[in-house]
Amino acid sequence: MAIVEVTVIPVGTGSTSVSQYVAKCQKVLELEKEIQYQLTPMGTVIEGELDVLFNVLKKLHEVPFSEGAQRVVTSMRIDDRRDKKGSMDQKIRSVKEKL
């Protein structure tokens, strides 16, 4: 499984607030049964099979357009580890064990 950190930023909306777009993206994620996700203050972390994640990322990128934005900048970081199984929870546990 891969882990992706994604941030979707609508540009030129006339407002500095983006929470309405974040909420709509979270609703999209709620419908996706093949992934796990976690909202963070600066983005969302999603885990699942890479092909599934790419489809979900495209849906998230489209959300601001469907809400009237004319430009969207989406940033993502992909952690695709193949030497052993990993997850969001496993990564956090690993750090906590070392504290």
Results as ranks from 00 to 15, higher is better:
Ala2Lys: 07
Leu29Gln: 04
Glu30Phe: 08
Asp83Thr: 14
Pro64Met: 04
Ile3Met: 10
Leu99Thr: 10
Lys33Gly: 06
Val8Trp: 12
Ser66Gln: 14
Asp79Asn: 15
Gly14Thr: 05
Asp80Thr: 02
Leu29Ile: 07
Gln90Val: 03
Ala69Met: 01
Ser94Gly: 08
Asp51His: 05
Asp51Thr: 05
Glu49Gln: 13
Thr40Pro: 04
Ile9Arg: 03
Val4Phe: 08
Gln20Trp: 02
Thr44Asn: 11
Val63Gln: 07
Pro41Gln: 00
Lys33Arg: 13
Val8His: 11
Glu67Lys: 10
Ser15Asn: 07
Glu47Cys: 07
Gly86Lys: 07
Met42Lys: 07
Gly48Lys: 00
Gln36Arg: 14
Ala69Gln: 03
Glu67Ile: 01
Thr74Val: 04
Glu47Asp: 09
Ile46Lys: 01
Gly14Leu: 00
Ser94Glu: 15
Val56Asn: 11
Val8Tyr: 11
Tyr37Cys: 11
Leu31Ile: 00
Leu50Asn: 00
Val18Cys: 02
Tyr37Lys: 03
Val73Lys: 11
Thr7Tyr: 02
Val95Asn: 03
Ile78Lys: 04
Lys59Ile: 00
Tyr21Trp: 01
Lys27Gln: 15
Phe65Gln: 05
Glu30Ala: 12
Arg71Gly: 02
Asp83Arg: 06
Lys85Ser: 15
Val11His: 00
Pro10His: 09
Lys84Ala: 06
Val8Gly: 05
Ser17Lys: 12
Gly14Pro: 13
Val73Met: 12
Ile92Thr: 05
Glu32Ile: 02
Ser15Pro: 02
Val45Gln: 10
Asp80Trp: 10
Ala23Glu: 12
Val52His: 08
Gly68Val: 02
Cys25Gln: 12
Ser66Trp: 01
Ser19Leu: 11
Lys98Met: 09
Val52Asp: 13
Asp83Lys: 12
Val72Gly: 08
Ile78Leu: 15
Arg77Asn: 12
Lys59Leu: 10
Arg82Thr: 13
Ser19Ala: 13
Lys91Trp: 02
Thr7Ile: 05
Leu31Gly: 09
Ser87Gly: 14
Lys33Asn: 09
Arg81Tyr: 11
Val4Asn: 04
Met76Ser: 14
Lys84Asn: 10
Phe65His: 14
Ala23Gly: 11
Ser66Asp: 13
Asp79Met: 09
Ile46Ser: 13
Arg93Pro: 01
Thr7Trp: 01
Val6Lys: 12
Thr16Val: 12
Val22Pro: 13
